[in-house]
Each structure stands twice: as C-alpha cells, then as structure tokens.
Design a protein around this nucleic acid. Structure first.
Length: 415
RNA sequence: GCGGACGUAGCUCAGCUGGUAGAGCGCCGGUUUGUGGUACCGGUGGUCGCGGGUUCGAGCCCCGUCGUUCGCCCCA
C-alpha cells in the first residue's frame, strides 16, 4: 500500500486504459490525414522563453504552472505545457515560413504543475492541429470541421457542443477590452474577489466567471459585436457561413475568451457536461501574432488542442482487447519444432503466443483468461503426424488441421 | 494556490460506545499429471497511507503530513 507510487498527477497507462488512449490518438491521426495534415514531433522540452514569450506572462500557465529547470550549463528549460508554441518555434527553426501554408498534426505528453483533479493531470496528453499561413476564415472553418470530425470518429460528438466566439482583430479587441474595463470598474464593490483580480490581469475572463453575482453583472456588459471593425465583422460572418456549409452546429458564446494571450478573431471550445468541471474537451482559436513573437515573419495561424485523457473518458465503446492464438505444448514436444510453428504463424501476421508454465489444465485456464481466440495443441504425436488440433475457444469445438494448412493459410484456419 | 470528503488485503468493502483485524472477488494449489471459462476442497494474503499525541490499551479520538477525490481558480 505504501509501495512506490508514480509522481502526483501522473499515471501509468496499462490494459484498457492504454487502449482507450491509443484509440483516441489513432482516430485523430487518421482524420488528420483525411484533412491533409502532416504529423510533426517536437521535443518535450524547450528553452523556457519559447513558452514564456508566447503564452503571456500573466497567464497562469506561465506564472505558476510550468515545470522549469536549469540545465547543467545553466540554461532554463521547460517541459512543454502545451503544443502550439513549440510548433510555431519549429516552423521558424526549420525555415518552413518559406513554404506556407503548413498543416500540422501533433500528439504527445504535456506538463503543468496544477492541482490534480478528474480530467486534469500534471502529465497529460494532447492531440492538436495547427494550420499555419492562412489568414482567411475558410482556414478557421476547416480546422474546426476537422476537430469536429475527430469527435465524430470517436463517437463522442453527440455529447459535446461547440461554443464559438470572436475576439475580432487587434483594433476591435482593444476597443472592446477598454469598454469592459470601464464597465466592470463601476461594479468594483459587487464583483467577486476572483473577478477583481481578473479586472487587473485579464478582464475578458470576467465574462467566463461562474460566480452568480458576477454573472448578473456580466449579462449587461458591452458585447464584442458592438466593437467589431467592418473587416472583423466580415471575417466572423464568413466563418459562420462556412461552418453551416460544413454542417457544423455551434452556439455563439461571448464567454469563450480563452486563457492564453495569443488569441484573436476566432475562439472556440467543444464542451461536455459529462466530465464535471473539466468540460472542455477540444479547444482553440486563431493566433495571428504568435509566429512573429517567436522571431519569425508575420504568419497567421489557427489551431486547436484536445485532451486525450478527457476524450478517453468519454468513449462509450471500449476498444476490444486483442486476441491471440495460443500454442499449448502437450507432453514434451521438441521445443525447436514449436519455434518453427510460432515463426510460421507470426510471419503470416497471426498474433501467436506460447502457453508457458504448468499442467495442461493450467495452461488452458491461462489461455482462456487472456482471451485467446484459439488454442493449438502440439504434442509429440501431432508433430509426428503433421496434424494438429485447433480449439475454437468461443464455441469449444475442435478440428484437425494439417501443418501445411497452418503454414500456408493460417488466416482461414483461425477465421 | 484555496475549500470539502475520503485513505483497512491485488480489487470492492465490513469492522459495534476505543480492547492488538474480517468478507466477497482475485491469486496459488488440488479434485482432473492430453484440454479452459461452471462446481467442490485447501492455501496465500494487511507494519489498518505515514509521523506524532491522548489512553492501561487506537483501525476506531486529536494534531500534522502525504495521497486520492469533488468544487473554486485555471485549463485539454
């Protein structure tokens, strides 16, 4: 009980848990391919400034959640807390700003020093997509449609709703922000403590407050729509029109402002009510200024990230455990002959194992427990005659199969 | 970072107003040394998260600590 345990907020993925995760990642990878996205892998740690510069110093992620450490030569490195900044860095590092657009899919572990909770871990996994180098609303629509396709492929789309918002361009956003500060400042005495802090650090977040008193005040707050420049308004209209064509339903939610500083124009979250307070399952937005902050040219971009753990929890259908053909030696057959049979089946792509240890009865029990599809009995007699008995573990029926048939066409023997 | 609940065998849990631990499942073996998932029999199994305190005596009371979990903050 007090044996050694994994570090707080980290988990081992074993058995069904691992299969669920794999299913999420594989489905996403497949859909990414359909949408023409290529997979990139970037290191799981970066120079600290890659994140501190991009996420904004006021964001919680940077100010208190990063796993940072000094390398032996004194350089500050950080276990990546998210994927987008690293992808932008890679775009610049590899001079791919010369060949835009780039459509990128990625997956892997992320690290944030937060208080663990259901659906929230210190090491967690994300899948993500970024479309770099396209400024038009079509890109936003495509990227959102791809996110939706991933959710559909996993069978969770019906448990999730898309909440959509626009922050407008820089000009719209600044004007709106100023209006919000002015408005909320009048209510200083009634706002919650949390929201007073937000008023200083990130006033847009007040819109997202769960505090009831705040919500009443928020209800009459200035709307983004009133501050959109004509260009930003066009962008917003176009995006929604294209989502309609893609057949993606959405709800316009002014509260979707996102936590990281780099967003503009489109922001969105696919949310569910089935995960307690960690309802956001896949979320993202447009971040036109980020690549430039990373030292590259002005490259517009849009993307999203999704939590693999959260998606895995939503899966209704368990991925099936793989089933093996188990060879059970009977008596004491020549083990080298067994190796020959194992090899012959494996070469044909049949998942084949050998039953180790114990009396025949024990080996049968073990084969049943590991959910074997078939058992192949191999004894001295069988080897001599070149005929083996195959037992279908489902029906319990046995049949004789020749060595030749096994080696030539195992697929139909174990169909 | 803040608040609440919980922490007894691998798992799910029981343990009366404090008297030095129990069940089911699992696991191992046997009934059956050439055949499983059922049945029966036997066995393995716990410094009661950890540390301190109160007490003649604590799994049960008190304090601390670590962990899990729910909510807040934030976020995938």
């Amino acid at each position: 009980m007090s044996s050694i345990q994994p570090v707080r907020g980290t988990h081992d993925l074993i058995g069904e848990e691992q299969r669920r995760h794999a299913q999420v990642v594989e489905a996403a990878r497949r859909i990414a391919g359909v949408y023409g996205f290529d997979e990139w892998s970037t290191p799981i740690f970066e120079e600290t400034r890659v994140f501190s510069r991009s996420l904004g110093d006021t964001s919680d992620v940077v100010s208190k959640e990063m796993y940072s450490f000094n390398d032996r030569d004194g350089e500050s490195l950080t276990l990546r807390p998210e994927g987008t900044a690293a992808i932008c860095r890679a775009l610049v590092s590899n001079a791919l700003t010369q060949s835009l657009p780039q459509k990128v899919f990625y997956t892997g572990p992320m690290f944030r020093h937060e208080r663990p909770q259901k659906g929230r871990y210190r090491q967690f996994h994300q899948i993500g997509a970024e479309l770099l180098g396209a400024a038009e609303p079509l890109a936003d629509a495509e990227v959102i449609a791809m996110g939706h396709a991933v959710l559909s492929a996993l069978g969770v789309a019906e448990h999730v709703t898309l909440e959509l918002n626009t922050l407008g361009d820089a000009q719209s956003r600044d004007a709106w922000r100023a209006a919000l500060v002015a408005y909320f400042s009048d209510y200083r005495d009634r706002l919650s403590e949390d929201s007073l802090v937000r008023l200083e650090k990130n006033p847009l977040r007040i819109l997202d407050s769960k505090n009831e008193g705040d919500r009443a005040i928020v209800a009459d707050a200035p709307r983004m729509a009133e501050f959109l420049t004509p260009e930003a308004q066009d962008f917003w209209d176009e995006l929604r029109a294209k989502l309609d064509v893609f057949g993606i339903a959405y709800k316009v939610s002014p509260g979707i402002v996102r936590g990281l500083d780099y967003y503009n124009h489109t922001t969105f979250e696919f949310v569910t009510t089935r995960l307690g307070s960690q309802g956001t399952v896949l979320a993202g937005g447009r971040y036109d200024g980020l690549v430039k902050q990373m030292g590259g040219p002005d490259v517009p971009a849009i993307g999203w990230a999704a939590g693999v753990e959260r998606l895995a929890m939503l899966l209704d259908v368990m991925p099936p455990a793989p089933r093996s053909v188990v060879i059970i030696p009977v008596g004491s057959p020549d083990e080298r002959a067994l190796c020959g049979i194992l090899q012959g089946l494996r070469v044909q792509g049949v998942r084949t194992e050998i039953g180790y240890k114990g009396a025949l009865r024990k080996r049968m029990e073990r084969a049943a427990k590991q959910n074997a599809s078939h058992v192949l009995f191999v004894g001295e007699d069988e080897l001599a005659r070149g005929l083996f008995r195959v037992k279908d573990m489902e029906s319990g029926q046995e049949q004789e199969v020749s060595h030749q048939a096994l080696m030539a066409d195992a697929g139909s023997v174990f169909a």
